[in-house]
Amino acid sequence: MSESSFVEPTRRDMLYIATGAFAAVGAGAVVWPFISQMNPDASTVALASTEVDIAAIPEGGILTVKWRGKPVFIRHRTKKEIEEAVTTPIASLPDPQTDQARVKKPDWLVVVGVCTQLGCVPLGAPGSRGDYDGWFCPCHGSHYDTSGRIRRGPAPTNLVVPQYEFISDTKLRIG
């Protein structure tokens, strides 16, 4: 039995394997363009940066600008808000991050205005800023603080800080 069960591979076996392997590679090569075409196209990627004049934002005010189809909050923080953000014990945060790590200048907080849970735009009008004076997401009840960090609710992470730089004291480039 053991003698007869071992069959020497033939040239035909080799042809089967080679043909199968080529077919698999070919199928993958054809499928890839159809998957890739759904990724962001060149015109979408080109709209990747935007410039904003921030001179007119009063202390305590929030300007919402559109960047890559999403809102970005530019918040001119008050002394009290900065104080709250800086003195919060890091250990008490669901997604621990210091305030310093999230801002370039303490007066200005720039975050993507998209709740990290399911993508709603959190509310930031005075009176609807949630329990931590930051933002409140009405969709599923996430509270963010004055540094845009998640404090309570289902959102897993802090509001995202986009890539940005100060071109001058009153001009900002996002992206």
Binding site: M38, N39, P40, R68
Partner: peptide, 11 residues
């Protein structure tokens, strides 16, 4: 990939 962009948009 689902969006074809960075948010829900024309694509």
């Amino acid at each position: 990939w689902l969006w074809g962009g960075f948010s829900v948009d024309n694509p």
